[in-house]
Design a protein around this nucleic acid. Sequence first.
DNA 1: CGGAAGATTTCT
DNA 2: GAAATCTTCCGA
Length: 198
Amino acid sequence: MKLTREFYQTDGVTLAQRLIGKVLVHRTAEGITKGRIVETEAYMGSIDKGAHSYRGRPDGRVSIQYGPGGFAYIYLIYGMHACFNVVANGEGTPECVLLRALEPVEGQELMEKRRGSRKKETDLCSGPGKLCQAMGLSRDQYGLDLTGDTLYIEDWGDPAPEILATPRIHIEYAQEARDFLWRFVRKDSPFLSVKVPK
DNA sequence: CGGAAGATTTCT
DNA sequence: GAAATCTTCCGA
């Protein structure tokens, strides 16, 4: 079943853990693609120096994060790659969950086509920019309602997977927030962006 | 208004 | 290990 608004109306750290194992779906004119979420990171605007929304303004890039949960926050990084986030919690709390890696479950052919040169299946969605390219996500999808019919997340009723918490990736500048264990990965998944040290 | 830096990927 | 490439934010 499709996740409801209520599912997203919780704090970012909790939502990040609950999203592991759920299935992201994007319907486009080219076709449909689905991927099981195996890696997420939480960003908590009010206390998190690594978050875009830490000193964000309600009218800036992160404006969508100030609204209710369950909307798409997508931004461009390094001028070339899109990153897809799910807005968490209610109005006035700029929190979100970055999806960092997926396990392709449907539309692999379309994903390979979008990603260009032939890739191993484990490399189709093993990173924030890669999964956006494979799923056909760009800033055109900024602000989409995830309770709508084109871009949403499904719960397939699978048993909750075993989850590991680790430090987040590429935020060395974030001072003490650098060490928060706000990256969550599905244990032993071969589809992760960065391997978890033993 | 200009400059710097970034929640990355890919190739050498 | 470094380049590619552009939006956003911050200081002047």
